[in-house]
Simulated scan of single mutants.
Amino acid sequence: MLTRRHFLTASAAAAMPLAPRRLWAASTLTLGETRIDTLSDGNLVLPADFILGGMPEAEAQAIIARYGLPADQLTPPCNVTLLRDGTNTILFDVGSGPDFQPSAGKLAEALATMDLTVEDVTHVLFTHGHPDHLWGLLDEFDEPLFPNARHMIGQAEYDYWTDPETPNTIGEARAAFAAGASRRLAVIADSVRLLADAEEPLPGIIARLTPGHTPGHLAYEIAGPAPVMILGDCIGNHHVAFERPDWASGSDQDPALAAATRAALLDRLAADGHTIIGFHLPEGGIGRVERGGAGYHFVPG
């Protein structure tokens, strides 16, 4: 049976204007013996053009205004998914760590609200290698922060970030992303498990290739009578990505491929009624997709 409850609401995410309220442990789903929580790693602070750049300006600003968001700066939340099945304690992504933005990197504090420590985590499954998902991998001594965890990432994603040519081809604006990912993945190179599309890294968890935001981006489907799709960034916000999934976004490394992936996935999710968990979606990121107008809407809950 699928249920949801809100709990442990904390105060503001960071001492800066426009920062959203942080929900340390925002939402819970129970699926039989499995419990899924979303934990806040804080939020990002981005110029609006990072997401809206290249979109029809007047139409994009009209969408942003409907959601009550500022025209020049966006502060998307960062929702790390925690799954516990009685045996395993699994994180999907690990947040930013201390080296990306001061408003993010709060996962250890969120875990503490659940009476968990980094030693309790048995598996880490990465959606992709961007800083807000991967850079929390290492501690201050450049050792894996989750010492007892088995780490897993898509084969194509790993190959991309560890390719010595990537820093030369990713573009100047993302060059630091490449350097940071390569350094962190090198630490776990001898033990990381590399995943293929449709592979089951753990029983009942299916990796789904959802490329475009990054070359080997994976979403993860939690199978069962009421399936759940952990999206990562293949659907990266609750406004333009839903209302106009066909629009290319500046946040995606391959904007055309990402738009095609997003449109097809939203169509499937709306038709199937799956619960979704989005890394940058509001209210803890848990909800569902509904058709609306020419596009879709995110419905929390």
Rank of each mutant, 00 (worst) to 15 (best):
L2K: 10
F7E: 15
T9E: 09
A14F: 00
A14M: 00
A15E: 15
P20F: 01
R21I: 12
R22V: 02
W24E: 07
S27H: 11
S27Y: 07
T28W: 14
L31K: 04
T34P: 04
T34M: 14
R35P: 01
I36S: 03
I36W: 08
D37K: 03
L39D: 07
S40T: 09
N43E: 14
N43H: 15
L44V: 09
L44S: 10
L44Q: 14
L44T: 08
L44R: 12
V45K: 09
P47Q: 04
D49F: 03
M55C: 08
A58S: 13
A62C: 09
A62W: 13
I64M: 14
A65H: 12
R66V: 10
L69N: 04
L69H: 03
A71M: 08
D72I: 01
P76A: 02
L82R: 05
R84I: 11
R84K: 10
R84M: 14
R84S: 10
D85F: 15
G86T: 11
N88L: 06
N88Q: 15
L91V: 12
F92R: 05
F92H: 12
V94P: 00
S96M: 12
P98Q: 10
P98R: 13
L107Q: 00
A110G: 10
L111G: 02
A112W: 13
D120V: 02
H123P: 02
L125K: 09
L125T: 04
T127F: 14
D132G: 05
H133N: 13
L137C: 11
D139H: 06
A149F: 05
H151S: 09
I153D: 08
Q155L: 13
E157F: 01
E157D: 09
Y158W: 08
Y160C: 00
Y160I: 04
N168Q: 07
T169W: 11
E172H: 12
A173C: 00
A173N: 07
A175D: 09
A176Y: 07
A178K: 08
A181H: 05
S182N: 13
S182H: 09
R183C: 04
R184M: 02
R184K: 07
V187R: 15
A189R: 14
D190Y: 08
S191I: 11
E200M: 12
P201S: 05
P201H: 10
G204V: 15
A207G: 10
G212T: 10
T214P: 06
P215R: 07
H217Q: 13
H217D: 13
H217L: 14
H217K: 04
P225Q: 10
P227D: 00
P227N: 04
V228E: 01
M229F: 10
M229N: 03
G232N: 06
D233P: 03
C234A: 12
C234W: 08
V240N: 07
R244N: 11
D246Q: 15
W247H: 12
A248S: 07
A248D: 10
S249R: 15
G250V: 02
S251Y: 15
D254L: 09
P255L: 10
A256Q: 08
L257K: 04
A258G: 02
A259Q: 08
L265C: 08
L265H: 05
G278H: 03
F279A: 12
E283S: 06
G285K: 00
V289Q: 03
V289S: 02
V289P: 04
H297I: 13
V299S: 06
V299C: 07
G301I: 06
